[in-house]
């Protein structure tokens, strides 16, 4: 007689034994697929960094330049540089010099602070620091801005002003020197700017304020009066009134 219970146990053992290779094959296949997928994932995920790493290494210098530039671009020398041709071609506007003036907040100046000149152009400050404007410049220029001080920048602008006699550059330089306490230089550049273009209100105001700082308040008042008679400028009137009041005190 058959021992059916024993046979059933044997059969179970046999089935397990029979299915084991398939199970191993299945597990092996799954392991292979998983390994393959993870390997391919690793490749795909690791390759971009490698690609990126090389350019990063290569562009190490420019990248740093860019960073520094964003910090050093406060004076927006490059921007001015980049827009210089347009400025010379287009009719003169007060926006650019004013913007530059806003870039570097002027030192405490009792004369300049009450004037509306400082407040008006403030919104234009943003475009000057936008990346598009920065990117439009060449790498060499950016590098120089990054490394050098404002002094260098102003010298560069002065050189450019000497070359192209752009009244807006002259106005900027005058502003710069006035903000930095170089009233003689401010006076000279404002004078030159007025000689090139006598319709720039800002230039006349800087010129007058520089005279005041140099102790020539009377000459400043006369200059303002002359300018007011020609342009009827409200800003000039305000400044003249202020000077008169301070002179009265």
């Amino acid at each position: 007689m058959l021992d059916v219970a024993s046979l059933e146990r044997q059969w179970l053992k046999y089935k397990i034994k029979q299915l084991l290779p398939y199970l191993f094959a299945l597990l092996g296949s799954i392991a292979l697929i998983v390994t393959f997928i993870s390997f391919s994932d690793t490749n795909t995920s690791s390759s971009p960094p490698l690609k990126e790493r090389v350019p990063t290494t290569l562009k190490k210098e420019p990248e740093t330049t860019f960073k520094d530039e964003t910090m050093d671009l406060e004076p927006s020398m490059q921007f001015i540089q980049s827009i210089t041709p347009n400025v010379s071609e287009n009719p003169p506007t007060t926006s650019i010099p004013v913007v530059v003036e806003k870039k570097t907040p002027p030192p405490h100046d009792p004369i300049a602070s009450p004037t509306p000149v400082v407040k008006v152009p403030q919104p234009l400050k943003i475009p000057l620091s936008t990346p598009t404007a920065i990117h439009s410049n060449d790498t060499t220029t950016r590098t120089s801005i990054k490394r050098d001080s404002n002094t260098f920048d102003i010298h560069e602008i002065e050189d450019r002003f000497r070359n192209n006699s752009n009244p807006h550059l002259g106005l900027y330089i005058a502003h710069y020197h006035y903000d930095n306490g170089n009233y003689n230089e401010a006076y000279n550049y404002a004078l030159k700017t007025n000689a090139i273009n006598n319709t720039l209100e800002e230039s006349w105001l800087i010129f007058a304020k520089s005279l005041v700082k140099l102790g020539k308040a009377d000459q400043a008042k006369k200059t303002l009066q002359l300018y007011i008679s020609q342009s009827n400028s409200e800003e000039a009137k305000n400044l003249l009134n202020t000077l008169n009041k301070e002179g009265g005190k």
């Binding site: 046979l7 059933e8 044997q10 059969w11 053992k13 046999y14 089935k15």
Partner: peptide
């Protein structure tokens, strides 16, 4: 299953 069990019994299969 029974065929395989019979085969195990007759020695045609081995557990």
């Amino acid at each position: 299953k029974y065929i395989e069990m019979a085969a195990l019994h007759t020695g045609l299969l081995h557990a």
